[in-house]
Amino acid sequence: MMYSEKVMDHFTNPRNVGEIEDASGIGEVGNAKCGDIMKIFLKIEDGIITDAKFNTFGCGAAIATSSMATELIKGKPIEEALKLSNKAVVEALDGLPPVKLHCSVLAEEGVKMALQDYYNKRGEEMPEEYRPRCDGDCSGCGV
């Protein structure tokens, strides 16, 4: 197919599939209408992402980007997770076909949405520049 070996690896053997019972933050992005929904669960302790899991309904790229995004932030401090970009996810996967780039945006947004939830739960302000933009309308994000 048009996918890199890395993408196929993360699709076939996705890392971090599942849910976290007592998650510190949960984010859900996308909608079933467009064919992709990602739900990201984060466990955060002392400012460190100690665990990250996901559930995804979507194509091969959606599953692979969820897997890679959760891998990239696990064990990292929040400050680093906030800076996770879709580009970093794409690079870590050795690229994605242009029509699948929106899946990487979804992964970035999913992580940000979960972090937003974490800040909300603690009654803290999430840094403005890192706030999620996903409004559930896939045609709106222009990727």
Partner: peptide, 24 residues
């Protein structure tokens, strides 16, 4: 509950060639 392209990819890995009408 599942999306067609990921289903096709997994079937293909098992040697089965099929098709889907999913957006992907």
């Amino acid at each position: 509950g599942i999306e067609g392209e990921s289903l096709l990819l997994m079937l293909d890995q098992a040697g089965i060639c099929a098709s889907s009408g999913s957006a992907c």
